[in-house]
Design a protein around this nucleic acid. Structure first.
Length: 743
RNA sequence: GGAUCCUUAGCUCAGCCGGUUAGAGCGUCCGGUUUACAUCCGGAAGGUCGUAGGUUCGAGUCCUACAGGAUCCACCA
């Protein structure tokens, strides 16, 4: 054995041996234990967060496998709809192209090919980390059978009356070209000048003067003495685009102290104002959209048509000022605005018909399951947060205006819905845009279908929900599902579509869901209620939420800060075991952890310590055996003193085994890692081996102790322990991964 | 505005179903190399466990208030 442990000499070979041995596949018999891996983005290389989940899940897979359970750790990758399309579009842009140059079928295939090129990387890297997942069961979220089940789920929801189509204001990113759910909008504080402008007989304060062309009413507080006489009246407003008549309505939501106590109502471009419209439907006209989905003012904005929102604001402010209609401007006013979590563009509230899922009936069951402890959350305070969300969740907008995803199984009959708006590339690759009724006069439906880019059906359009085309004459909705809609069914879908027919029966509900706390609401919550809806059972019994990995100073890692720890580089430098141990030791559920080079180096030292302790114990044991064979027992090792010490050693050792087993069972892997580290180094090495040198503990007891420690250490540092294991005289399992956990 | 979490050695953090002298890693200081490991060993310094109350025979560990910090959520134009 070398003087030092050199990970790169062992890791790849050991991993291949594990794979060949078939231990990653669940045994035919034994108590079932299952973990569904959170599918990483198929298109992204591994980052430190992945290394964290791989380590934690692998610890439990190995631990339970060694305890004799039939362990399934099922891996997969995610198509990551918006993320991936966003990245792909950036590439297109570099080539001077955009998604509008392609029909949706072609674009989809292009992204598919692009993702396929990269999809092996993440899996290869997880293997580098030692992940003992069953790769033969790997699933991709756009696999045919997965798509079929997701679509079926939507149909079931629809048949159960839990799906509806509605025009509401959506969170629309004009840069990504799609709507988002509320959860995907980030709120940031910005300076938004507050403009006090003259408005008919009033002065009102607004941060969005450019939306004035979409105003449909004026609103005051019902008890506001200043404006009593106007309530219910129609007033005339002379603005930049001629004269308008507008009704003054009263609502308690108006804050009399803010601005002048007068609010303009713009239902097409403000969430509050849309609610006001719904509440005062009888008094005010419907939403009047003046900003298009391209983020530019439309024809209703008169001479401002074609300007981007911010340009229009500038122009409108300038014109109002010129005409003396601007009373004052508060330039320091700050408010929070929504921005796209992906690209940071200001979210534009726009009216759009979308498909919504009614969540109340679903969340009720999840709340009950939580209350009855059918599922237990590990992570500081996150059970409360989950509970709070389940109680207050809004209906779920699942429509996305992107190509990279699962298309909604919604069909519009072309003849019967002539007002459906269609964009498509004709045979000459020219983009044509019009209502389908008009288009059919000049084009065949087949040509439209072939070049289809997107369609937008009015709310009144009749549709059919069907997994396959209901007939020749139908056009399929071009919206795709929110990625989280398919992810929400992941534990169920992966097991149901498995090529092993028993998997669902054997492994559902799964034993453990392990993921980062930042997707508790996006993913875990939705899996919980969808799993309950589809199977009547919780999808997982335990949820372990790990924290974010930060740099040694506690700063978030980011490319711009240049403090990103690349797991692959770390593995090359210190070995996979060192990285794994550094990530997990002293970590606590739900809390962020700082990891720096020092931490990893410290754990590299542990792997070397394991190696060298083994080196000593093995040599010492061999020497002892030789003495035995020659019939000359070394004097120091004989006598009752040594036997007595051996007994004490064994007793303490079994105490250590119990402690670590208990900590792992209690979902405290960070503490278990620390315990095993401490007892191995400071007890086994510093005390027991030293005592052996003085002849107080026998080499035989020591080598038995080493075997136990290798097993205890194995889930945390699988490579070095396996490397040492093969240096030991063969007494039990050939591979440590298949050995039995000490009792 | 609401919610959650945190405050323990110079730094980063464990420990908390309450129970003898409060731990680790890194760092600092002193000493050590006749072969398991200098990626090491032995030893030392360093903490009134945020503040103030309370519960208790006994509290970093439970409760309350306060202070400071972090994060998440929220429609004041």
């Amino acid at each position: 054995m070398d003087k030092r442990y050199q990970p790169d000499l062992f890791e790849d070979k050991i991993y291949r041996d594990w794979e060949k041995s078939g231990t990653f596949t669940p045994k035919a018999k034994g108590e079932a234990y299952s973990i569904i891996m959170p599918p990483p983005n198929a298109n992204d290389p591994l980052h430190i967060g992945h290394a964290c989940f791989v380590t934690l899940e692998d610890i439990y897979a190995r631990f339970e496998r060694m305890r004799g359970k039939s362990v399934l750790w099922l891996p997969g990758t995610d198509h990551a709809g918006i993320e991936t399309q966003y990245v792909f579009e950036k590439r297109l842009k570099k080539e001077g192209k955009s998604r509008f140059d392609f029909d949706r079928g072609t674009l989809y295939r292009m992204i598919w090919d692009y993702v396929e090129e990269n999809s092996g990387t993440a899996i290869k890297q997880m293997k580098k980390l030692g992940a003992s997942a069953d790769w033969s069961r790997t699933k991709f979220t756009l696999d045919k059978d997965v798509v079929a089940m997701v679509v079926d789920t939507f149909k079931k929801l629809y048949d159960d009356g839990l799906v509806y189509r509605e025009v509401r204001l959506v969170n629309y990113c004009t840069s990504c070209g799609t709507a988002f759910s509320n959860l995907e909008v980030k709120h940031v504080e910005r300076v938004s000048p507050l403009y006090y402008m003259k408005y008919g007989p009033f002065t009102l304060a607004t941060t969005r003067p450019e939306t004035k062309f979409g105003d449909t009413a004026i609103e005051v507080h019902p008890d506001d003495k200043r404006y009593q006489k106007w309530i219910g009246q129609e007033v005339e407003v002379k603005g930049l685009a001629g004269k308008f008549k507008m009704r003054v309505i009263a609502d308690r939501r108006v804050d009399r102290k803010f601005g002048t106590g007068v609010v303009k109502v713009t239902p097409a471009h403000d969430f509050n104002d849309f609610d006001v419209y719904l509440k005062h439907k009888k008094e005010v006209p419907g939403p009047k959209q003046v900003i298009g989905f391209d983020g530019r003012m439309n024809q209703l904005a008169g001479k401002y048509q074609g300007l981007k929102v911010m340009e229009a604001r500038k122009a409108v402010v300038a014109d109002l000022t010129k005409r003396g209609l601007m009373e004052k401007v508060d330039e320091t006013y700050r408010n929070t605005i929504g921005v796209c979590y992906r690209c940071g563009t200001t979210i534009e509230p726009l009216p759009l018909p979308q498909f919504y899922i009614k969540v109340k009936p679903l969340t009720q069951r999840a709340l009950r399951a939580l209350k009855e402890k059918k599922v237990k959350i590990f992570g500081a305070g996150y059970d409360k947060i989950l509970n709070h969300w389940l109680k207050s969740l809004d209906d779920w907008n699942v429509s996305r205006q992107i190509v990279w995803g699962i298309r909604l199984p919604i069909w519009y009959e072309a003849d019967k819905n002539p007002e459906v708006e269609v964009k498509f590339l004709n045979k000459d690759k020219k983009l044509i845009s019009d209502q389908v009724g008009e288009l059919l006069k000049n084009y065949s439906l087949a040509e439209i279908k072939r070049g289809l880019q997107s369609l937008r059906a009015p709310l009144t359009a009749k549709f059919t929900v069907s997994p396959t085309s209901p007939g020749e004459n139908f056009l399929q909705e071009t919206d795709t599902f929110d990625t989280w809609f398919s992810s929400s069914q992941w534990p169920l879908v992966t097991l149901k579509t498995s090529r092993f027919k028993d998997d669902f029966k054997r492994f559902y509900p799964t034993s453990l869901m392990e993921t980062a706390y930042d997707i508790l609401i996006f993913w875990v919550m939705r899996m919980l209620f969808m799993g309950l809806y589809l199977t009547g059972k919780v999808p997982f019994e335990k949820v372990y939420l790990h924290g974010l990995i930060r740099d040694e100073k506690g700063q978030k890692m980011s490319k711009s800060k240049g403090n990103v720890v690349d797991p692959v580089e770390v593995i090359q430098k210190y070995g996979a075991d060192a990285l794994r141990m550094a990530l997990v030791i002293r970590s606590t559920a739900g809390r962020d952890k700082n990891v720096g080079d020092d931490d990893i180096r410290g754990m590299r030292n542990l792997t070397n310590k394991i190696w060298n302790a083994a080196r000593f114990v093995i040599v010492s044991n061999n020497t002892h055996s030789e003495h035995s064979r020659s019939g000359v027992a070394p004097a120091a090792h004989s006598g009752s003193d040594s036997d007595l010490k051996d007994e004490k050693f064994k007793k303490e050792l079994s105490g250590v085994v119990k402690q670590i087993t208990d900590q792992l069972e209690a979902m405290k892997p960070g503490l278990a890692a620390e315990t095993v580290y401490f007892y191995f180094w400071h007890w086994f090495c510093d005390e027991c081996i030293e005592q052996n040198k003085q002849g107080k503990i026998s080499p035989l007891a020591l080598i038995k102790g080493l075997r136990v420690f290798l097993k205890l250490l194995h889930p945390f540092v699988p490579f070095v322990t396996e490397a040492v294991w093969r240096q030991l005289p063969k007494t039990e399992e050939k591979l440590l991964i298949g050995a039995q956990w000490p009792a």
